[in-house]
Design a protein around this nucleic acid. Structure first.
Lengths: 218, 218, 218, 218
DNA sequence: TATGAATGAGGGTTCATTCAT
DNA sequence: TATGAATGAACCCTCATTCAT
């Protein structure tokens, strides 16, 4: 056997081992998602996760440093997915209108949440207040969305597309309206599938024109 | 000493004892609010509360059945205050306009939250997922507000004051927008005082007319 | 008022105060008997006793040093009554036959037990193993009865009235047979009244016929 | 390694693990017997048992649900041993005489007690009054023995072997006589070994001679 | 790597007793 | 003397993490 062949054999072995390891990690992560989602962080014991994953106690700690660590990883994964669905606002002439971009963002958030229902449920249920690191991550995520929204709003205002407003407060309102809809659909209604498009349109309509009857001459 | 005098003396003693007891309860409740607010429910040990209250271990259990019970009582107190600020919608001709009533409700929620900052912080931070009873109470509260809002919206629609909409979703949006503002002001910004009136107006404006510049020809 | 009169007045006051005190003690003792009897020593809390007696917590400790002390006093009372029912064996010609004396003793034990049902129940249920002092008192009582019986048996043997036997073991048997009957009647059967005479005769028949020299002509 | 070899290796591992577990359980049970026997149930803390067993706190709960559970198991073990020594009465012509069967039963009880001295001591000292489940178990045991004895007595009476009697009371007497002898030998005399055969014969002599039909020429 | 028995810090609750009124 | 609020030592049990196999 040539050295090259040997190397690649070794590589193959390593690769296969790594794949095995990744599969195992994924297995445990899935089990953790289910368990955390069903029982909440504090009521979930490591024993529950390993039972759901069908692994031994010690094995858990070969893949994750602690119960807190696996939760943190799940949280990061979800937030990353959310963030990746939020594109920066493009105000170049060739770009789609700002409100179209906002619509896309809302839709992305809804879709991400819907396809990560269990995970989202955990975060909404009780990620806040767990520990300082978790709190920080959520705060950062919130801040990031908030800043993005506020910037978008300010751009819209200065371009005359949006009415004058306290962009800090309104950005918070927008975030909250979306967040609450997610919460109600995922946590409260037991994760039943919902009409993403309809919901997104309602949210957008609500955000753009508010509640009142169109004022012809306002 | 006449019998009447004796009786009132006894009454006095009873009243004083009751007052003492109430004071004591209040003392412990205050200590609990501080501790829960600062450290969160799970990281708060009974030891922390009694240290903050300056009482002995056993004394705590003289006034509250358990750590969970005192939390539940705090939660109820807060939710009751919130609920009491939400009046039913009055659509009689002599009543103020529906949007005025909504404005009052928003203001009331903001004020209640601001004057119970620590308590509100606890509820927002981690009341959800604590235990089934707490979850139920919070859900009920949410549902109550949601129903009230949805009913108001439907009234507004049928009276032609509001545009047609999916009142279920929009009620959720409204709730979320207010909730998020509270969260940001109380939890994130460390409870710094904020301009309730300004915030309420912004929220209302946001809810009523949305984000967009007035559409002259819609 | 003469000095003598005053003194006797004072005496009267003292006497009346003492009477009051004794009544109070008796009240608490009765309450303790009921509670201990119903729930057992360990499951009885001081709170139960004072509730049954209708007195305040602190009052209890004005009359008894501790929960253990009141139990000890009850125990002593009962054992004293039992002991007083056991007369020394009289073998003088003018005395009634030994087996008559034994019969009386058994009857006395039964009667004492029946008229102190609750108290006896406590002692049978769990006086043993409570603490060293209680154990000692019970052991002493047991020893005393045992010795008395053994002596009686030896007398009977040496007088040719009883068959030869290991008086130590047999004394124990006799004690046990009586004890078990009490236990069954008082503890197990809920303290329903029982026919003392019938039971005593059966016990005696059981014991005596077994112990006596063969009855050639019965 | 052949599949069969592998399987047996696995079996071996499982068996060894089970054996280890059983040993461990037995170790803790022994420690518990010692501690309960020496200090009594209530004065025994779980800390005492684990110190005696040389294990950690948590380990205890790996093998037993609670302090109460381990006591219950000890109790059951002992009562089972006692019960297994009590054979049903056989009145067929080929069977040994009824009184021989009773003799065996007494002997068995004595032997079981003697070889489980510490355990028996606990049960005698304070099993009664511990909790409802324990009480029930002891009552059931008592009832079982009592019924067995009463049935035996009735058989003996109807066969003309025994004199007429109140079999309920007399069964109680017999039980008590044996019980008291056990108590005296195991609890009071510190568990010093005793001459089982001699004691059994004395008990039997005491019981049988008393129960039998009058012996005309004995 | 996989296992699961062992660990022990941690925390909630009870209840006999004390003491200021 | 009577009260009952206050005390705090005592003790059971859980569960995240470690480690020998």
């Amino acid at each position: 056997m040539s050295q090259t062949a040997m190397e690649s054999a070794v590589d193959g072995r390593i690769t296969r081992a790594q794949a095995r390891r990744e599969n195992r990690r994924a297995l445990i992560l899935r089990a953790a998602v289910e368990t955390f989602s069903a029982r909440g962080y504090h009521r979930t014991r490591v024993a529950d996760i390993i039972k759901a994953a069908g692994i031994a106690r010690g094995t858990f700690y070969l893949y994750f440093e602690s119960k807190n660590a696996i939760f943190l990883e799940l949280l990061e994964t979800l937030l990353d997915e959310f963030v990746s669905g939020v594109d920066g606002v493009d105000i170049s002439p060739s770009a789609s209108p700002v409100y179209e971009q906002l619509l896309d963002t809302v839709r992305n958030l809804l879709i991400t949440a819907a396809s990560n229902a269990a995970l989202t449920r955990i975060v909404f249920r009780e990620a806040v207040g767990l520990d300082d690191e978790v709190d920080q991550k959520l705060s950062d995520f919130d801040d990031r969305l908030h800043e993005y929204l506020q910037q978008s709003l300010e751009n819209g205002c200065s371009m005359g597309l949006l009415r004058p407003m306290d962009t800090g407060i309104i950005a918070t309102c927008i975030l909250g309206s979306v967040r609450q809809v997610l919460y109600r659909n995922l946590v409260r209604q037991g994760g039943l599938p919902f009409d993403v498009d309809h919901v997104a349109r309602e949210i957008l309509e609500y955000n753009c024109v508010g509640l009142m009857q169109a004022r012809s001459l306002a």
